[in-house]
Design a protein around this nucleic acid. Structure first.
Length: 713
DNA sequence: GACCTGCTGCGGGCTG
């Protein structure tokens, strides 16, 4: 399908096909043919093809494959990212032909450092290929890349064909609009139909026994990190099942958090040790050292010895680790698209099924259990995600954010590229033609004025009206940390005998003589060097997993709506084990007993009622904020709100909401402190920060409809 | 209530 399209037209395209099904070849074989059959000396200079990847590891993989492909064609292939040596980059710049494989950040660096060279480097590019398109849709990084693609066309004064590659795209229309914002209809979608692969699936339920202690409510950080025997018992049971069923082959276990990765890899390697068996369970997450991660990746790929990686989403995207026997998921996942991406790692060889093992834990019920526990939300969410996975659905991006942090970044970048720019030119490049089209002229000038405020000093205006980098702006742009638009936390290095094991964020309260689990082993802290940001450790027999921090994910509306359908129905799910099936029955019984079948507002005890919004995280928390602004206490669960008031009072408030205009997002947001989360947020004024956060995290226009729906039930 | 991703230029020391 790709050959006629790419050879005979200059149309944009999306190639959607499963992992390892040959997307790269489908795109590159026709594109390379088209390049080498082009008459030499065609207009312009520069690279012939550009490939953009969100991962360095993916560039290294593709470099090896394309180099083989292009060897006899005298078409050079150049990898270009932070780990590529300056000499290779210098050669690529001098030759400026062939195929360039680059990250968005390195492309950004080219604009900032060699703005004037851009037309000569990219003047005759035949096509830009964007890999892992789904990972770039509505994130700050995705907006960054869109801005760079747009600026590439402006700098070279020509349209450049765009080709997107992806395994998991939900809404194709949104993906097309991302790839070519002005005219999404012209983007051709090539979708592989070979999705009829067999799937073996089991979801196992586990019960955490009721705590024996009267009061086990955690109050301080220290206590929160306390090990609860009932939880440990369940973790051990899950680990035992994994040990018995996955040992002996290549597998991936997605544990849900870095802390869980540490817990389970410690449990699994201890079990190997107790039984005098060689260990084959290794942790893999972003805070572990490059050395260790490469070691695990190589063991998986070479498949000489059986290996199971206990991992986070580090092993989710397209890095080549070969085929795995089974994928395990501990706990409910956050999105169907990531579940699908994970599953794509298994069953890639012909005739072999994909295998997915899910492990979900729920708490044993007591007289005073909360409805959110009675409804078994984790289990029901897992089932909803599996349902939607089997229906080939996945989350669409949320396209209504303003991305002011990235806008600040791109304003600085365009000024650096051109050595100065007028406000009207910046507005045209970034907002009219670029991805910040939701920012109007008024908001744009507020952002510029803030950046030019002498206290902020990111930009300043010359007497002839040209905007230049200000005192602080120059410092920010000159630092090599400028090129990425996403935020990263400050971290300490964990060192044993001079060897770095990995890093830890500074959230954890640590002191000498404390013991920790890290990199799947146990350590005692010898010393903490604050100036060097180093924690020295040595091996020990005991230890606890550290806290890594993190922020919650947004669950999509469709997933939560499906959760209600599952609770209200009575059809069994064949893939549940006995325990999980029992938990589902319990959840459905609770749904009826609580009265949620007939009503969306139910009294659940003195001064408390439950609102069943059955809406995703953004709408649900918008409703929670709105109710808090009325002075109510509100607890937040999947599709549910626990409101600290009687049903009469809540109904009155909802009645009012249903007939009033939607509150403004700003009204709701001022009730609470919204944190600065993005990299350039600290440079925004408080009111601009609220405008940005409201656009991405609040959906106030949904409030009247939600209130009406709550009252309907 | 979670996870992940990226980075230039320069100087010192060493090898051939």
């Amino acid at each position: 399908m790709a050959i006629p399209l790419l050879l005979q037209s200059d149309q944009d395209a999306i190639i959607a096909a499963a992992t390892a099904s040959g997307k790269t070849e489908a795109a590159f074989l026709p594109l390379i043919s088209s390049v080498i059959s082009k008459e030499s000396g065609s207009d312009g200079t520069g690279f012939d093809l550009v490939y953009i990847s969100p991962l360095k590891a993916l560039i290294n993989d593709q470099f090896r494959r394309l180099e083989d492909l292009c060897e006899r064609l005298e078409l050079p292939v150049y990898p270009w990212h932070g780990d590529v040596s300056a000499s290779v980059k210098a050669r690529a710049r001098k030759q400026r032909r062939g195929i360039l494989l680059i990250t968005p950040e390195s492309l950004e660096a080219m604009f900032v450092l060699r703005g004037l060279e851009i037309p000569a480097l990219f003047g005759r590019v035949e096509a830009v290929v964007v890999d892992e398109l789904h990972a770039m849709l509505d994130t700050e990084r995705g907006i960054h890349l869109r801005s760079l693609l747009n600026r590439l066309e402006i700098a070279t004064r020509r349209r450049i064909r765009r080709v997107g590659l992806s395994a998991t795209l939900g809404d194709m229309d949104l993906a097309r609009a991302y790839l070519r914002p002005g005219s999404p209809d012209t983007v051709e979608v090539l979708r592989s139909k070979s999705e009829g692969q067999a799937l073996k699936l089991q979801l196992r339920g586990y019960m955490i026994g009721a705590s024996k202690r009267e009061d086990d409510r955690a109050s301080s950080d220290q206590e929160e990190n306390q090990v609860k025997p009932e939880e440990v018992a369940v973790e051990r049971a899950i680990a035992e099942h994994i040990f018995e069923n996955l040992r002996g082959t290549q597998n991936l276990v997605f544990a849900g958090s870095r802390r869980n990765v540490e817990i389970y890899s410690d449990l699994l390697s201890s079990m190997s040790e107790e039984l005098h068996l060689p260990n084959e369970f290794y942790p893999h997450h972003a805070n572990l050292s490059r050395d260790h991660r490469t070691f695990v990746e190589r063991r998986l790929k070479e498949a000489k010895e059986p290996t199971t990686a206990i991992c986070t989403s580090t092993l989710e995207l397209g890095i080549d680790i070969g085929d795995v026997e089974a994928v395990a998921q501990i706990g409910a996942p956050f999105s169907v698209s990531s579940l699908r991406q994970r599953l794509g790692r298994s069953g890639r060889r012909a005739g072999k099924p994909a295998v997915l093992r899910m492990y979900v834990t729920e708490k044993e019920l007591q007289a005073d259990s909360h409805p959110s526990d009675m409804l078994r939300l984790g289990l029901v969410r897992s089932i909803a995600m599996v349902d939607l996975l089997l229906e080939q659905w996945c989350e669409p991006p949320r396209p209504d954010a303003l991305h002011l942090s990235t806008l600040v970044h791109q304003i600085l970048s365009v000024i650096a590229e051109r050595g100065g720019a007028k406000a009207a030119v910046l507005f045209k490049i970034l907002c009219e033609l670029g991805p910040f089209h939701l920012v109007d002229a008024d908001l744009f000038s507020r952002v510029l004025r803030r950046m030019g405020d002498p206290a902020v000093a990111l930009i300043e205006q010359s007497p002839d009206g040209i905007l230049l980098l200000g005192r602080i702006g120059e410092r920010v742009v000159e630092h090599y940390g400028f090129y990425a638009v996403f935020q990263t936390a400050e971290e300490y290095r964990i060192v044993s005998n001079g060897k770095t094991l990995g890093t830890l964020p500074v959230l954890t309260v640590l002191a000498p003589d404390m013991t920790i689990i890290f990199s799947g082993r146990r350590w005692r802290i010898l010393a903490i060097h604050d100036a060097e940001k180093v924690i020295e450790v040595s091996r020990d027999a005991t230890g606890r997993p550290p806290k890594f921090g993190g922020d919650g994910g947004n669950i999509d509306d469709t997933v939560v709506r499906r959760m209600r359908t599952i609770l209200a129905g009575n059809d069994p799910r064949k893939y549940l084990d006995e325990k999980a099936a029992g938990l589902l029955q319990e959840a459905r019984a609770s749904f009826v007993r609580l009265g949620l079948e007939a009503s969306n507002i139910v009294q659940i005890g003195d001064g408390h009622c439950l609102l069943a919004t059955w809406a995703g995280t953004v709408k649900n928390s918008t409703m929670a904020l709105t109710l808090r602004s009325e002075g109510l206490m509100v607890g937040n669960y999947d599709g549910l709100l626990d409101v600290g008031a009687d049903i009469g009072r809540v109904s009155d408030i909802l009645d009012q909401m249903a007939v009033s205009d939607a509150p403004s997002g700003e009204e709701i947001a001022t009730e609470i402190a919204l944190p600065a989360t993005e990299k350039f947020h600290p440079y925004l004024s408080p009111d601009l920060l609220v405008v940005d956060l409201v656009a991405s995290q609040i959906e106030s226009e949904a409030i009247p409809v939600m209130a009406a729906q709550l009252l309907e039930g």
